[in-house]
Design a protein around this nucleic acid. Structure first.
Length: 439
RNA sequence: GGGGGCGUGGUGUAGUGGUUGAACAUGCGGCCCUGUCAAGGCCGAGACCGCGGGUUCGAAUCCCGUCGCUCCCGCCA
């Protein structure tokens, strides 16, 4: 018999159907047995009058919580049942897998173990409906982004994650044994997505893993995460990139609201607010003035950078003055930006760059790139980089590469902001950090 | 890499020097009751209080070390 999803049971009142799922609760009474079965779409009460089938009743008595069941029975409307006002009268049951007991923890309990313990048993943690929803939201996000890219003539690329030489800085790269020599895990597809511009692809995007060997112990860092990267040609400035990004984000927020708005409200207690465009833009110069007015003192050694506390203060200011959850922080000084960011002709100390701050969290960084070979080489040297190690990259710009720019955005950080989570480890399938390589 | 906090039955917590034979909730096992529904009732098993050392007549409780977790800063997505 074909499987019916629990959320569709009401369409089958009076029919005998099969559902498959997990035993969440068993109430084994003297004459009756009640099973609460959960699948990805919901929960249903299944009943058996023990006298009607003593053998089946005995099987049910031996079931453990979270066992996998295939159940067939008659769906009946029953307003007395608190769970959806219907129930299934069991006729046959197949135990697909009996769960060991006791469980390390009960995924349906009110009080949850601490995050680190749940990560040890992530597959149990992911059985919680709230987590199933989180990954459905993630799927919708990625689909919407892809739709928007495809509507705008983007091409998807998959760049290598093994690299022969430390490229940008070298400090934050993982080293791996590669036959007789060393290789490095890519900490960004930056160079390779720019190659797509030199290749004449005009616009490319990539969704892929990114590795950072930073020993960071915070609620927003991981050593491996999924990067959302794009690059577009023939732009006039980083403003074109921001204008694209805000509409691209707006489109995805709308898709999540349309498809999961009600569920997110119910399980995360959060309303999805589709942001208006354009997002507010604040230059670094303005930001420093705002922080001064707000009475926020930056640490002395910031060299024109803004710390997370400053970013949150600015986010509050934007919320108050523009009623917006997002803002672009633009025009960063060259001291805190990589060599490939383009600089203003009339302000050589300032880059045509931006960060996107959402809910006080930095979720993306972008810029117009320097596409002129000579200027790029000079800027690299100015940063103290040896040209030999990046010659393959510089070559991209030697034989005609159009003006271009792009951004990199963190997938899990975006989910943190979208769903109002307090730790990035809640937002990722399996967390990787300095002390976490398992499971 | 720097700083703060925490570490008690499976899980979440209480207890901060002596009526502690370490408590409570939940989970687990057994029994009872019941068309139940976050079910209810009774009984039971389960921790030598992360680990090592020290102070003290006496340490889960104080001190030192160590390991683990966590948050903040730095760095970034």
């Amino acid at each position: 018999m074909e499987r019916v999803y629990i959320e569709d049971l009401r369409k089958h009142i009076g029919e005998t159907v099969t559902v498959q799922g997990w035993l969440q609760t068993l109430r084994d009474q003297k004459k009756m047995q009640f099973l609460v079965v959960r699948d990805l779409t919901g929960m249903v009460q299944v009943v058996l009058e023990k006298a009607a089938d003593p053998e089946l009743a005995a099987t049910i008595s031996g079931l453990t919580q979270e066992s996998n069941l295939t159940l067939t029975g008659l769906v009946i409307d029953n307003p007395i049942v608190k769970l959806g006002g219907l129930e299934m009268q069991l006729t046959t049951l197949k135990v697909e897998a009996l769960a060991a007991s006791p469980l390390p923890f009960d995924p349906s309990a009110d009080t949850l173990p601490m995050l680190d313990f749940r990560m040890d048993w992530r597959f149990l943690d992911l059985r919680r409906p709230v987590n199933a929803l989180l990954f459905q939201v993630q799927t919708t996000l990625e689909q919407a982004w892809r739709e928007y890219w495809l509507q705008n003539r983007f091409v998807e690329i998959h760049s290598p994650k093994l690299m022969g030489s430390p490229s940008e800085s070298g400090a934050e790269l993982f080293e791996v044994a590669y036959f007789e020599r060393k290789a490095y895990l890519a900490q960004s597809p930056q160079f390779y997505k720019q190659m797509g511009m030199a290749a004449g692809f005009d616009r490319v995007f990539e969704i892929g893993p990114v590795f950072r060997a930073d020993p960071s112990f915070t609620s927003r860092h991981m050593t491996e995460f999924t990067g959302i990267d794009m690059e577009m040609s023939w732009i006039e400035s980083h403003e074109d990139v921001m204008a694209f990004q805000e509409r691209w984000l707006q489109y995805a927020w709308q898709a999540v609201k349309d498809r999961h708005g009600a569920a997110v409200q119910e399980l995360f207690g959060r309303e999805i607010v589709v942001p208006s465009v354009p997002f507010p833009r604040i230059t670094m110069k303005q930001a420093l003035e705002i922080l001064k007015e707000e009475g926020y003192t930056l640490p002395a050694d910031k060299k024109g950078d803004i710390d997370p506390g400053g970013e949150r203060t600015l986010a509050d200011w934007v919320k108050r003055n523009h009623d917006h959850e997002f803002f672009f922080l633009t025009d960063w000084p060259i001291t805190v930006r990589p060599f490939y960011h383009m600089r203003y002709e009339d302000q050589p100390e300032i880059t045509k760059s931006f960060d996107l701050i959402a809910g006080g969290l930095e979720i993306a960084t972008g810029a117009q790139r320097e596409h002129r070979y000579d200027v790029l080489a000079r800027q690299a040297q100015g940063k103290g980089l040896g040209l030999e190690s990046i010659q393959f990259y510089l070559d991209f710009f030697k034989y005609g590469c159009p003006p271009h720019g792009g951004f990199g955005l963190g997938l899990s950080r975006t989910l943190v902001v979208l769903l109002g989570l307090n730790n990035i480890r809640e937002a990722v399938y399996l967390f990787r950090g300095p002390n976490r390589l398992e499971p």
